[in-house]
């Protein structure tokens, strides 16, 4: 279980990125995060888990444990994997309702959105959308 709430983790990330003055440094840090994130088990790299972007593919797997949602994911792009690492850090291990309602303001605050061309930003957007959809799915299961 993740002890911290989503906002607290977002604040931590924003603080970390404040260390960097330039986009180059942010890029290299995100690459490093991507390299550190463990690969997704091959059995989850299936079409039903795939989010096809314009320039990269993402595989996202989600599961529920004790009322919390956990995510694991992978991409053929190390940079996208680094973005995933950030999203997982914020959203994995949280309550479905919190995942659905959060607006992920940190993405703007760390200057990530402005540096992404539309196609890639859309890739990030569809990743977030898919994470929220999973959360919504688990939420409605709980209520049923």
């Amino acid at each position: 279980m993740n002890n911290k709430g989503i906002s607290a983790i977002e604040d931590e990330i924003v603080e970390e990125f404040e260390l960097f003055d330039e986009w180059t440094e942010k890029y290299e840090y995100i690459i490093e995060l991507g390299q550190k994130l463990s690969d997704l088990d091959e059995k989850y790299k299936i079409d039903s888990n795939k989010i096809k972007g314009c320039q990269s593919s993402v595989w996202l797997n989600a599961y529920e444990k004790d009322g919390l949602i956990f995510f694991e994911a992978d991409s053929d792009s190390t940079f996208v994997k680094g973005e995933i690492a950030l999203l997982i850090r914020v959203l994995s291990g949280q309550k479905p309702a919190d995942i659905v309602s959060n607006e992920l303001a940190f993405i703007d605050k760390i200057g990530l959105r402005q540096h992404l061309a539309m196609t890639r930003a859309n890739g990030l957007a569809s990743m977030i959308k898919q994470m929220k959809l999973y959360a919504l799915g688990f939420q409605s299961q709980e209520k049923a």
């Binding site: 320039q55 792009s77 190390t78 940079f79 996208v80």
Partner: peptide
């Protein structure tokens, strides 16, 4: 190495190229 990652790295070095299909 992934084409997108290379393109973004080149961008940080001031070099504009196109990646993808």
């Amino acid at each position: 190495v992934n084409a997108l990652d290379v393109g973004m790295s080149l961008d940080t070095q001031g070099i504009a190229v196109r990646t993808g299909h």
